[in-house]
Design a protein around this nucleic acid. Structure first.
Lengths: 143, 143
DNA sequence: CTTGACCTTACAGTTAAGGAAAGGTTTATG
DNA sequence: CATAAACCTTTCCTTAACTGTAAGGTCAAG
């Protein structure tokens, strides 16, 4: 099967298949003569696995581990679950950060008239001439 | 003021200040003779503005717009608020996506024994030999 | 025979910097 | 005065996970 069909069947763009080959994730055979990539059914199965693992947010590095486990008859289920639990923790951390951001942004928006004047409490909050103004900004000055 | 002090006072790394100069955000004068960057008080003010705008999640592109508005005496408050409201929408979209991911990952983790056997419902869900298995995967096949 | 749809490689660009190399300047100290 | 530490400079490479573009080879249809 050539790359176009493999892309269609895996739900991934052609460019992505070339990229995955380049980084050693799924390396198809080559057709004699024209050097076209020749994807086997197993290759496509692996590509689909990757597509789904990416769709649930795993990094390519972790996808590689998952694919290795998928191919490994001697895997232990606990290894797989560990990766999922780690990912859940990451997602929870991101959710907390985004909630914090949203609350800051909402406070900013709510405190702002949004009219045609040049005075703007949002700009003032970001300029923050003295740290006494808009206390919610003080929480996020960690970086 | 040289770059190290400007970095300390703005809360940004030295490398970031050089980068911001390179992309035209804050371009300090140069000292005669040694060509060191020479940041004015206004430059540092702008750097601090950028630091805070980045800290609340605005992209550099939007930070540039915000900084332009900050410098613009004729800005309209509504322009600023528009950017904040757009950012809030982005954050909400991301929150929804992350909630969806978390629920998928949690379902996966909850359905998995996590023991020492090779059988793993997570791997099966990602492999998904037939689309009849684990219906929550069907929602996310948009990319 | 040519047109269009495939396929190939290689290189550049994206975001927002971080790191390293190789070297010039200034300041503190012996 | 010499020198070493602590600054500063530029340039290039790296990150994640691709996407876009250029320039060209191959294949099937009409």
């Amino acid at each position: 099967m050539n790359i176009g069909q493999a892309a269609t069947q895996s739900g991934l763009p052609v460019k992505t298949l070339r990229y995955y080959e380049e980084i050693g994730l799924v390396q198809p055979a080559r057709m004699a003569g024209n050097d076209y990539r020749d994807y086997s059914a197993v290759d496509v199965e692996h590509l689909r696995f990757l597509q789904r693992a990416r769709a649930v947010g795993f990094s390519l590095e972790v996808c590689r581990e998952l694919l290795d486990l998928y191919r490994d008859e001697n895997r232990r289920c606990s290894q797989v679950k560990k990766l999922v639990l780690e990912k859940i923790e990451q997602v929870e951390t991101q959710l907390q950060e985004l909630h914090a951001l949203k609350s800051i942004l909402s406070d900013m928006a709510n405190g702002c008239a949004g009219d045609e004047s040049a005075d703007c409490t949002i700009i003032e909050a970001l300029a923050q001439p003295k740290p006494s103004f808009m206390p919610f900004m003080l929480v996020e000055s960690s970086s």
